[in-house]
């Protein structure tokens, strides 16, 4: 099976500087692999184990991050056999459609892909659109909110956990799947994993100027006002304190 796991390098969200009403300042935030994307990569690795002989390809559309050896090593140390980077400055801050178009084109170019995996959303914009759009652009079956993945013969078994029900499907391939953050616990690379990552192949598809046109115009991006905190502190290890805390929460709700 040929599995593509898509990911995005985003500014590490915990290093953002947020001032209510102002644009988030990312200047001090180092790049990181989107945290939800790690679930997609892990899901790909686990599926590949179920189907011996599988190949897992990590795929990203990136601008400045495309050349970072550190970021390449970071994704490849999570298991994928190789990496494909679609490079264009236009991908920094691109909307979902621009990204999806680039990824879909790359998937066609890679050729013979059975399954494309996404996380539940990007760590920065979290629009949860790119997976669906790639499915539509490729004309493949597409499902999101997938919390369990398995193989049954040549088909994919899928479980979706929704607010009011859970669904199970049997899907023939090729397909595009977006997984939830609860589907697995992404692995932590070992020293050997990181060493191995340095030896894996990286293909850069330079598509300078060929990116699709944006469909969404961003008018503004503002950090929200911080919610007022009650500031009540319960500091104790006794059962009474736990009860007091529970009582307080109930009262506030």
């Amino acid at each position: 099976m040929k599995i593509v796991a898509c990911y995005k390098n985003t500014p590490d969200f915990e290093s953002l500087r947020l001032q209510p009403g102002e644009e988030p300042d990312v200047s001090a935030a180092p790049l990181a692999i989107g945290q939800y994307d790690l679930n997609a990569v892990e899901a790909a690795m686990q599926l590949a184990q179920l189907a011996p002989g599988s190949e897992v390809i990590a795929l990203t559309a990136a601008g400045a991050a495309a050349d970072s050896t550190k970021q390449r090593k970071a994704i490849l140390s999570r298991g994928p056999d190789r990496l494909v980077v679609v490079k264009d400055e236009a991908f920094d801050g691109a909307d979902s459609f621009v990204t999806a178009s680039a990824l879909a084109a790359a998937i066609e170019r890679i050729g013979g892909v059975d399954l494309v995996l996404f996380g539940e959303g990007s760590a920065d914009m979290y629009a949860q659109q790119v997976g669906c759009m790639v499915g539509a652009l490729l004309g493949w079956r597409e499902l999101n909110s997938v919390s369990e993945l398995g193989l049954d013969g040549g088909a994919l078994t899928v479980r979706r956990e929704l607010a009011d029900r859970s669904e199970t499907y049997r899907l023939s391939l090729p397909a595009v799947i977006s997984v939830t953050s609860s589907i697995n616990r992404p692995r932590i690379p070992s020293m050997k994993d990181i060493l191995g990552a340095g030896k894996k192949g990286v293909e850069v598809i330079d598509c300078a100027g060929l990116a699709a046109d944006s469909r969404v115009e961003t008018l503004g991006l503002r950090a929200p006002e911080a919610a007022e905190r009650k500031g009540r502190v319960f500091q104790s290890v006794t059962d009474e304190a736990i009860e007091a805390l529970a009582l307080e929460i109930r009262r506030q709700m």
Binding site: T69, K70, K73, I188, S190, M191, I194
Partner: peptide, 19 residues
């Protein structure tokens, strides 16, 4: 420190972070 590491990396040093 991250900058100096990148400089060494550019010279060919292999960094294994998170270990």
């Amino acid at each position: 420190d991250d900058w100096l590491a990148r400089e060494a990396e550019a010279q060919g040093a292999f960094y294994i972070n998170g270990i």
